[in-house]
């Protein structure tokens, strides 16, 4: 398995993230124009580092990683994993096993599935809880995705995915920024890719709560623009 980790200014966390997944496969970190030492730390931790000379966004970084994994490493299985230390390696391992059972297509992580379902616990970010406002945005995203892409999933903007090389070849991402997650669902629908979800746990932290809720507006804008001008 080739694990692709897009990273932007994650020098403080990337080392521990790589260490947690290194036993599961080859790690490729795409340093998306970081101003800190993300690339150097990742290299020391044992990852192959691809560096974007300027920041192009998470979607662009993932596509760079996938092309590298397919063209240079001849990967058979490709995984996406976040660089901010909020995901668990055991969830990635479980998603990999699910793909093995499935034999084709893609496995997506879901924060709202099964016993690991994440519940909103607070109005303010804490070490574990998801805020109510984030929950509302994500649930709105599910409805939007259902209407827009026609794909019924329980979690749309989740960065944990495991797929076969055949699937990765079909998922050519053209949306460079955060809308890539919706584009992936679009492409899954278009190419009729076999899809399943596994429950995962995401640990939210006080110091970094990931993407802002306002980030939904550029995502919707990019998706509409793609539909309008291709």
């Amino acid at each position: 398995m080739v694990i692709i980790i897009p990273a932007f200014n994650e020098g403080e966390r990337i080392g521990a993230v790589i260490a947690s997944v290194l036993a599961l496969g080859k790690v490729v970190v795409v340093d998306d124009g970081s101003a800190d030492d993300t690339g150097a730390v990742a290299r020391r931790a044992g990852a192959v580092v691809l560096r974007h000379v300027i920041n192009r966004g998470q979607g662009a970084a993932l596509q760079t990683g996938m092309e590298f994994a397919l063209r240079i490493l001849q990967a058979e299985v490709i995984a996406h994993f976040d660089a901010d230390g909020q995901m668990r390696s055991e969830d990635l391992e479980r998603a990999g096993l699910r793909l093995q059972e499935q034999g084709e297509g893609i496995v997506l992580g879901s924060r709202f599935l099964g016993c690991a379902a994440l519940k909103p616990t607070t109005l303010k970010p804490t070490d574990q809880g998801m805020t109510f406002s984030r929950l509302l945005v994500l649930q709105g995203g599910l409805i939007f995705t259902k209407i827009f892409s026609g794909v019924a999933v329980t979690d749309t903007h989740n960065g944990l995915r495991v797929m076969t090389a055949e699937t990765a070849k079909k998922l050519k991402l053209t949306l460079d920024r955060m809308a890539h997650a919706s584009e992936i669902l679009d492409l899954i629908k278009v190419h009729e890719i076999r899809l399943s979800e596994v429950p995962i746990v995401v640990s939210y932290r006080i110091d970094k709560v990931g993407q802002s809720n306002w980030g939904m507006f550029p995502i919707v804008r990019d998706l509409l623009k793609k539909r309008l001008i291709g």
């Binding site: 290194l22 080859k26 490729v28 795409v30 290299r43 044992g46 990852a47 192959v48 580092v49 691809l50 560096r51 974007h52 000379v53 300027i54 192009r56 662009a60 596509q63 760079t64 092309e67 590298f68 063209r71 240079i72 490493l73 053209t174 460079d176």
Partner: peptide
């Protein structure tokens, strides 16, 4: 924007090939 991304990507992949041989662990 797509052309800029394509150039940035090709540079990253070209440099990464060398990196893969030297530092990457299997």
């Amino acid at each position: 924007e797509q052309e800029i991304t394509a150039i940035v990507r090709e540079i990253a992949i070209a440099e990464g090939q060398w990196d893969a041989g030297k530092y990457g662990r299997n």
